[in-house]
């Protein structure tokens, strides 16, 4: 019984980690541009296809390919689609992000077809390990480890580096940051590059878990993670990561705790919980400071 509880917990935390990384990628872009970037799903997807392309050569090459692919696509999207719209109102940006998202997804379907393709990526991690009498999947532990490392690294970057400071200032009050000499193009491009990096990490872990890539992958992750950023408090990065984590954990716990006949309604329960959170705390759990006092 105890062992089973720990298994569920590890499962929940590892899924929570994936959602936290996704939510952080979305939250970074929202922070500097007030853009809810649904095309984040396509960053995950393109990284998935990079894995498909290279996994037969070596796992390291596949990971590298995923990172390069997702970062390049993120920078390309920023330069071609979102830079011309800088300063447009949030609704325009949102619609544009849907357009970009659909465009890339449909182009991909045209190029490679919509059928899922199997990928035998990091299958060595699929085996079980026994820790203190509890059997756990190695991949889940790796997922938790990677999530923690990336969250800590992102936090360090934002706190301790020059670009990180510029990014936090720009996220709170973009115009003021510009007045203080912060170069908007560099800060925003960096935010997109980091969101690409996070998307690549999520893609690698996700592909290793499911063994599949397809043009539509990433979308469900992004929608749930977006819900997480809203719960956490839009515009707040700790809020985004925490909200994403919470939503991921909740999904797995609902799956484990709901009676079997209700499990198909898992998402309905999840969104009910989300609605309750938003009624009680409309600003989110860790609201952003300064969001209301922009110039």
């Amino acid at each position: 019984m105890m062992g089973q509880a720990i298994q569920v917990l590890v499962d929940a935390v590892s899924v929570g980690g994936l959602y936290a990384l996704t939510a952080l990628g979305i939250g970074l872009i929202f922070g500097v541009m007030r853009l809810i970037n649904f095309a984040h799903a396509q960053l995950i997807m393109i990284a998935g296809y990079a894995v498909l392309l290279f996994f037969a050569q070596s796992a390291a090459l596949a990971v590298l390919g995923a990172v390069v692919g997702a970062v390049l696509l993120a920078l390309l999207i920023e330069r071609t689609a979102f830079r011309p719209l800088r300063g447009a109102d949030p609704a325009t940006l949102l619609i544009a992000s849907f357009a970009v998202s659909f465009f890339i997804e449909k182009t991909m379907i045209m190029l490679v077809g919509s059928r899922p393709k199997g990928v035998d990526f990091l299958s060595a991690l699929a085996r079980q390990v026994e820790i203190a009498g509890v059997r756990l999947q190695l991949l889940q532990l790796v997922t938790i480890l990677v999530s923690v490392v990336l969250l800590v690294a992102t936090t360090w970057f934002l706190k301790s580096t020059r670009l990180g400071l510029e990014m936090r200032a720009a996220a709170e009050n973009f115009r003021m940051a510009e007045v203080l000499g912060i170069r908007a193009n560099r800060v925003i491009a960096t935010a997109f590059a980091i969101s690409g990096l996070l998307a690549a990490a999520v893609a690698c872990l996700f592909v290793a878990q499911t063994g599949l890539v397809q043009p539509r992958m990433g979308l469900q992750l992004v929608i749930i993670a977006f819900v997480g950023t809203v719960i956490g408090g839009l515009g707040s990065l700790p809020g985004a990561a925490f909200g994403g984590f919470l939503v991921g954990v909740a999904t797995i716990l609902l799956q484990a705790l709901l009676p079997p006949e209700l499990r198909v309604f898992r998402e309905a329960f999840l969104f009910l919980a989300v609605a309750v959170v938003l009624v009680v705390r409309p600003q989110g759990l860790i609201p952003a400071r300064g969001l209301k006092e922009r110039i």
């Binding site: 200032a169 709170e172 009050n173 003021m176 203080l180």
Partner: peptide, 20 residues
């Protein structure tokens, strides 16, 4: 209205101008 970045420390507020 003084527009300090409220999510940053006092020192970081000044540092923003310097790294800029």
């Amino acid at each position: 209205a003084v527009r300090l970045f409220r999510g940053l420390t006092v020192s970081e507020n000044v540092e923003v101008g310097l790294v800029g």
